[in-house]
Design a binder for these strands. Structure first.
Lengths: 152, 152, 152, 152
DNA sequence: TTCGTCGATAC
DNA sequence: GTATCGACGAA
């Protein structure tokens, strides 16, 4: 009941619409995607080559990957994540003691001081340490405002 | 300014709340997760062992994986997916011709017949072929109702 | 106990070798990689756009992905994989019966016939079916030669 | 050329060896794997529940994941990785200056001192800083021995 | 042992 | 649905 092979395909479009579907269109999409994937693969290979070259020059590839990852994060995010991690590490007893400047940052944040109250000059290493402590405590306080951890 | 080492932690809770965070609670969560992950790893290893044993008995592991994947899908989904794929393969010219029974299923679906109109007995191979063709065409028609592919 | 800030850096290379490491070289590698990753991301976005467009034209994206995957495999691999899968599906009772032509391919393979002994013309649907059965049985026999499944 | 349906299956083993393959054995493997995967899934769900509960108590899940990851690494690996990263961050100009104690650790490592030459008491924050600098420089020197970066 | 591919999982 | 991560198999 109906001519064989390809269904109700009465229109004589050459090779188009085969099987009732927009065959040409499908082919077009598939071709475009395959072409783009080829390009993408080429670039992925290039990246791999650069890593190989770097390795040949004595660089540690996993560390480079980590470095690239950190660069993708905005400095602010990175600091916040790091502070939170420090906080958890300390809670777990997996970190050393705080440095003096870190401790001072913590205290100052508790006392309501703001980031610009950093008492150290920017080229003093303690500047960063104070900032880390301040950030850590600020993050903690913000978290505690939003949630009520057991015991709060 | 403020006693050193651990912040404003005046309450003497033993090891709790260290760093201002609910340390005991954190430790508890971490322990539970690590314990569960250990169990999970054990089971993953067991699975690996079974595959290894199967391989030693001459079975092809990738094919077994594929088989397991297919079994996860409901038969209905599998058929539908397969029909759609057949449709696309035909449109791309990547498949052989339809079998006679498939073609008949296609025509019958176009003619508005329903799944139970399958003219073949269930133990006839053409039963399945007709069903595939019918399902394929039914899927196609449903798709065309929902969308207007260019040219429709 | 040595001049401060940057170690044994006696050579006056400007900004190079900072920290004893080939800093300029590292920066170069990192820059190249980041540039390539940007390009790669752009292409990935283009691919996504094509899928979105195809979807808007009524195509089923998961099926297209499957289609693309199949096209990546060489036809020979695909057939072999499919035959092996059929074999396992039959063994699990998850497949319908063999078609007549498939069965004949199985028997012919068992009888030592070769692929070119296909008794059907290439435009006959049974050509493919015979080939599938032949391939399946050939694969099975090859497997049995290599291993000794229990009972062999 | 032999009665149809199931090949050269002359032995009457009930449902076994169907299709020439050790069907029962295959089914057994598949069952075992599916059972194990079910268990594995259950545990994965439990883990997810714990994370959800932790989140409900104000903990940051990504940070917890990071913490768990760090705990999986041996402390030694972690230090080494961290030192290498610091080294690269400094080279890229993405880190602050070294602390005094770090710098001293760097110098001491260059001077051939060993890890136990740490001049700070273990409860002094500078103990850790010195160790980081020492480790970093030690790692660097080891790397330079193995490779010849351009310019060495 | 290292690399590349593949599947799983988290966002 | 996508991108990252870890695991597995191959060389």
């Amino acid at each position: 009941m109906a001519p064989r092979k390809k269904k109700q395909d009465d229109a004589p479009q050459p090779s188009s619409n085969a099987g009732g579907i927009a065959a040409d269109q499908l082919r077009s999409f598939v071709d475009r995607i395959e072409r783009l994937e080829t390009e993408k693969k080429g670039i992925a290979d290039d990246i791999k080559d650069v890593f190989t070259e770097a390795k040949g020059n004595g660089f540690d590839v996993p560390t480079m990957r980590l470095l690239l990852k950190l660069r993708k994060q905005k400095p602010h995010e990175r600091e916040e994540q790091q502070s939170m991690l420090d906080l958890y590490l300390h809670a777990m007893g997996m970190a050393g003691e705080y440095t003096i400047a870190e401790q001072q940052g913590i205290d100052d944040a508790s006392a309501g001081k703001v980031a610009t109250d950093n008492p150290f000059l920017t080229d003093d290493p303690r500047h960063t340490q104070w900032a880390t402590g301040w950030q850590m405590q600020t993050t903690l306080l913000a978290t505690q405002d939003e949630n009520q951890p057991a015991g709060a």
